[in-house]
Amino acid sequence: MDLTGSHILNADTNRIWAMLMDTDTLARIVPGITRLEKTAENEYKAVAEIKMGPVSGSFSGGLTLQDIREGEGYTLHVKQSSKIGNADATIRIDLKPTDEGHTELVFDGGAKLSGLLARTGNRVMSGVAHTLTKQFFNNFEQEIETV
């Protein structure tokens, strides 16, 4: 499953970068996350609850940041397992400053799904991903507003 897109956020690149590198912020804005712990430098343990149509389950696993380009982006590697199947995603994130203190966040990658997750509701999976992405950016914007 391809995961690509972009979104313009209402903050400058430095601020967005700081938020993306902060565990507590991430825990608040990533949809479904119930627990996010730093286990090593750039490595996290994550637990998430996702309930959406045919996709309903408790996910747990690792989250690793690689290829860190200070202030510019990183590659996020997510490996989550659940009773309804496993997800293995690699997503490159790039931050690009736009005018007036805005930042464009561009993401490009894909997820490998297995088990029931792969087998069931495949047509709606990209819809689920789309909804989660939208939620993520909504949360992100709220976080920018409130903090």
């Binding site: 045919p54 792969a118 087998r119 069931t120 495949n122």
Partner: peptide, 14 residues
């Protein structure tokens, strides 16, 4: 099947 051997239309939705 996808390239990893996952059956990706294993339901009556698919």
């Amino acid at each position: 099947y996808d390239e990893n051997g996952q059956l990706i239309n294993g339901s009556y939705m698919d």
